[in-house]
Amino acid sequence: MNTAPLGWRTERDAPGRVKVLEIECPWCGARDQDEFQYGGEAHIVRPTSPEDLSDAQWADYLFNRANTKGPHAEQWCHGAGCRRWFNVVRDTVSYAILAIYRTGDRPPGQNP
């Protein structure tokens, strides 16, 4: 986050404003999105025995994506900070961040 004082009051200071992709790193706190790298859809499990899959099943794992319009579980890495990966549920229309949780956990509200 830019810590230089702003010369004038901007919309940025308006109370209650939805911040455009400021991400709350579970370890470092809220930082601007450009400190982070996007890692694509979360919870894609690599098949344990690829040799047993058909070409279509392998293609589905490799290329096909949910590309959800709405709440989307995805991976982010805090590359310019702690360099750790974590998961985010983000609304892909409003870009509002709905949940942040650790890699390996299920999205909040979903049973393992």
Binding site: V20, L21, Y38, E74, T92, V93
Partner: peptide, 14 residues
């Protein structure tokens, strides 16, 4: 393009 997926017809300032 922005690296993240989005349907919001707007992207990042960076």
């Amino acid at each position: 393009i922005d690296a993240y997926t989005g349907y919001g017809q707007r992207g990042s300032y960076s």
